[in-house]
Amino acid sequence: MTERFTKAAARNIFYGGSLFFFAAFVSLTAASHIYVVNTGTDSKGLTDSVARGKHVWEKNSCINCHTLLGEGAYFAPELGNVWIRYGGDKDPEGARAALAGWMAAQPSGIEGRRQMPQFHLTEQEVNDLADFLAWTSRINTQNWPPKISG
């Protein structure tokens, strides 16, 4: 580095620049917060059962096998659009029944296939989880994922 670029200059650029970019980042996330609430997600549809369903999702640490909107572990299928994959956008009751059946049938015990644990969910919990996944499938994800396969 050249002599003209002094340590004091480096220091001032670092502190000044960091403050500037942090302020820019905070402002943009504030704007995004408003966007998420008004446009990105279905705030009106965020019912108590969706909230309870999110808790079911967290309590059983689903994220450490599955991904949800691409985030999580990569050991099991993406679930952000699983509601659509189950046909829930056209036949919600059918998808709900299919989800309940799936949860009840785990673990499959099939040799050589990844095993999903039995979480012993109550009927209410399965319903809440379905509501949560249905709500999640309506998030405006800029058309991600590219295919229904997730």
């Binding site: 580095m1 620049g17 960091s18 942090f22 966007y35 998420v36 997600t41 909107l69």
Partner: peptide, 27 residues
């Protein structure tokens, strides 16, 4: 100073690469 400056100047707004597909704005 130069290295950590570059880290924060790029890294703070670089958070944006996690905000592509989670319900956040397209920008």
């Amino acid at each position: 100073y130069a290295i950590v400056g570059l880290a924060l100047f790029s890294g703070l707004l670089g958070t944006g690469h996690h905000y592509y597909w989670i319900g956040t704005p397209g920008y």
